[in-house]
Amino acid sequence: MSWGENDDADDDADARFIELDGLEKVFDVRRRAGLLRREKHQVRAVDGISFRVPRGEMVGYIGPNGAGKSTTIKMLTGILTPSGGRLRVAGIDPSRERTRLARRIGVVFGQRTTLWWDLPLIDSYRLMHRMYRVPDARFRANLDRCVELLDLAELLDVPVRQLSLGQRMRGDIAAALLHDPEVLYLDEPTIGLDVISKAKVREFLRDLNAERGTTVLLTTHDLTDIEQLCRRVMVIDHGRLLYDGAPAGLHEVGRSERTLVVDLERELAPIGLPGTRVVRVEGPRQWLAFPAAESAAPLVARIAADFPLVDLSVREPDIETVIAAMYAGRSTV
């Protein structure tokens, strides 16, 4: 809380805008064991996670399916109470003051829409206006801005059920921002989107974070989202934090590899270049793995110079591979 002119207190509050301290969530799961007997056992979905996110930061929060990402987000929004540990968002205990917090945060669940299915997009926005009690002028300004930047002008009068997935996602992101939230949680915002829609969404988020200073916590399966948007990424698996740092470091820790897919004019012997290994050969197409932390440019130049190259593409490792490499790296170090 601010004490008038005490800037130190404000700075401190901003430094731990989102604060988790040994956060835990344990679910009781009943499983059928035999005809009538049921076994009760516990699943530790979130198993002691601590981190701080300062105000205005854009952070990636990644992990394989079932790692505990959504459970964490649900606790951060207050729709799930922690089983243990401490949690504060903007100084508020989310599960105790869910409604008060809701006015200060925005949430986008990639696979679930908050929009009104049968009605034109604009109707959902009018509802947000009333629900969050946004002053009229502010609402207009925010809506105009979202409509412009997310390219929604043509869609406002279209019923949500007729929107494409990418259009709907942009609509959902706008809906989450009309009340000027200080924090935006995005749960898989680019899932199922095509390349162009993904680029649009990313560009918008980058601007939002830069111009408005909105704190963003992003879960995703797409490492490209993280690399293009976040300077910090947290990796979680089995409810624990595995990594917290720069996206580039992710590859160093895990020694994960990117793959260069090379199409040659004709079938050739595997391309043996130092620092790479050929993982697969299929006719004139070859797959070369190289360390993800290194640039692909020299490698591409070398291949283009020495081999009859037709086409090539670079494939980023997926999150599961990075995490698997991370475990492997740990056990060998």
Binding site: T77, R98, F109, M131
Partner: peptide
């Protein structure tokens, strides 16, 4: 059934 109710619960309504 689908869990979408979580979205409703988080709204300030």
């Amino acid at each position: 059934r689908t869990g979408a109710i979580a979205v409703d619960l988080y709204r300030p309504a």
